[in-house]
């Protein structure tokens, strides 16, 4: 049975993809996610391995040449499209939230 394609990204998925705009190795990804989120989101090595494996299987990230015997990964075009789509979805969520919660309507500003 074919695996269900990724629709929405979980928080760790989103940040891992953000890290892979440029090539990065596994431990680098874990550190960068931690830095980016101020320690709010943490990705353990086992979790990262399974996320990367899934991204690779769906052609969202690809392995690039290893440096210092460490495998590096980078986002593919498909991955970038997915991330952009997710980014705009989240952005729309925030905008909608602002309209309702903070009373910002389109014409107000």
């Amino acid at each position: 049975m074919a695996r269900k394609q990724l629709q929405n990204l979980t928080e760790p998925m989103y940040y891992v993809l953000l890290c892979l705009k440029t090539p990065l190795h596994g431990y680098g990804i874990m550190q960068k996610v931690d830095q980016m989120t101020g320690g709010r989101v943490k990705v353990g090595p086992g979790t990262l391995y399974h996320l990367i494996a899934r991204f690779e299987a769906e052609d969202i990230v690809e392995q690039v040449s290893s440096t210092n015997n460490k495998k590096s990964y980078v986002m593919t075009k498909k991955g970038r499209d997915l991330l952009n789509k997710e980014f705009f979805r989240l952005k729309q969520l925030v905008l909608d939230g602002e309209h309702i919660l903070e009373g910002k309507l389109d014409g107000d500003s």
Binding site: T10, P12, K42, V43, G44, P45, T47, L51
Partner: peptide
């Protein structure tokens, strides 16, 4: 060191 699995779903899947 972080726990090896930080996402319950990934651990469950494994």
């Amino acid at each position: 060191a972080l726990p090896i699995y930080t996402e319950p779903m990934e651990e469950y899947r494994s």
